[in-house]
Design a protein around this nucleic acid. Sequence first.
DNA 1: GTGGTCTAGACCACG
DNA 2: GTGGTCTAGACCACC
Lengths: 120, 120, 120, 120
Amino acid sequence: MEFDKNTPIYIQIMFEIKRRIGTGILSPGSKLPSVRELADELKVNPNTIVRAYQELEREGVTETRRGMGTFVVENDKNSVSEMKNTIGKTFVEEFLKKMHDAGVSNNEIITLVKEAIGEN
Amino acid sequence: MEFDKNTPIYIQIMFEIKRRIGTGILSPGSKLPSVRELADELKVNPNTIVRAYQELEREGVTETRRGMGTFVVENDKNSVSEMKNTIGKTFVEEFLKKMHDAGVSNNEIITLVKEAIGEN
Amino acid sequence: MEFDKNTPIYIQIMFEIKRRIGTGILSPGSKLPSVRELADELKVNPNTIVRAYQELEREGVTETRRGMGTFVVENDKNSVSEMKNTIGKTFVEEFLKKMHDAGVSNNEIITLVKEAIGEN
Amino acid sequence: MEFDKNTPIYIQIMFEIKRRIGTGILSPGSKLPSVRELADELKVNPNTIVRAYQELEREGVTETRRGMGTFVVENDKNSVSEMKNTIGKTFVEEFLKKMHDAGVSNNEIITLVKEAIGEN
DNA sequence: GTGGTCTAGACCACG
DNA sequence: GTGGTCTAGACCACC
């Protein structure tokens, strides 16, 4: 995994976990990798993982069971389709805000998106 | 102009200038407000404006003429439609990459965007 | 380190860093002094160091790792001999251009350079 | 004539005048273009020309005769070969200082210069 | 008048 | 402890 230099690493890790839930790699109820494991895997300071897990817990996405580790909460919110939706909507809103700020109209936005998708 | 607390002010000023070019408020060749003027207008420290203007120059959007001020470069890139297009495409690509990484399909993307626009 | 009054301090610091790379004092991958350390050492405001480090990063000479410091990029460009070569060639070209513009022939250039070196 | 963005325009104009003397375009005793003429020719603010002429007079290169204009002083120093030498030495010294600062040895300097000349 | 640089000192997010 | 950003205020060279 490569990190974008401009956004905090712990945020990117949060999205990585959500992505794994959204794509079914992690299912509700399953155990997250331990802090040390994930720190090793991502070549990152363990404190950074701790921070990410804490924020995820605050958001209600995960829960820690003492002595057992961190788990994906079994929640409607964490079903594959819901998680995809949640992440998606966040990104869409960010995106629309930026475009509007740049003076691009709604029609132009749709056109640009369709073009870009067509090209791929 | 209101500033978003989470992104550096000088970045937001850069976008504001680009937006003014993109919407035709500033045309290629025209003079930007002086550092002190804009600092006053935006209730911001002059150094912050200086920083924004320098970055814009580094990006080739503006140029400074000694003792005369800062000007929009007369450049195809800075024509109204081009500027909008450039900014737009960059954002669209970032956005699509994120969505695909999150496992959202092209069809779902278009649906989500349309929904979000409809709501606004 | 003494500063020349006529050129910005941050530029002189940039050259100092490049010189340290060019002479092998700093090797690719190694950590630069922290902003505060170097500010102390050079009796200069920390902001001035920040500026120098940022410009070096823009030039691809260094990179910052969040919360860890600023490092010399591991790059062919930054090997001792290459760095010396790169800086040197830039200066030589500038120099020759100026001399030719002033109407000095190639032979005269070599003579003048040898004279000046002999004198030192 | 194109101006280097980083050095004051009036300095560049001074060198331009010296260059014209060094290459024989202007001979000792001849009249310089009027301030307005040169300002027009170089697309520059007349004040900038005034400044350049003043500095040249301070250096003893030119003199102004009231109501008649500015003239190249008839001076050994202003003979074609001498002027070339003067400019040349200034540039050579600047150049050597930069190279030494960058850690390039005298031998390497001569090698680099010869290479660069050979290539042209 | 213009922008460019620097200092002093503060606060913040990140690891 | 690390760099990033911002403010306040100063001085300077240039046009």
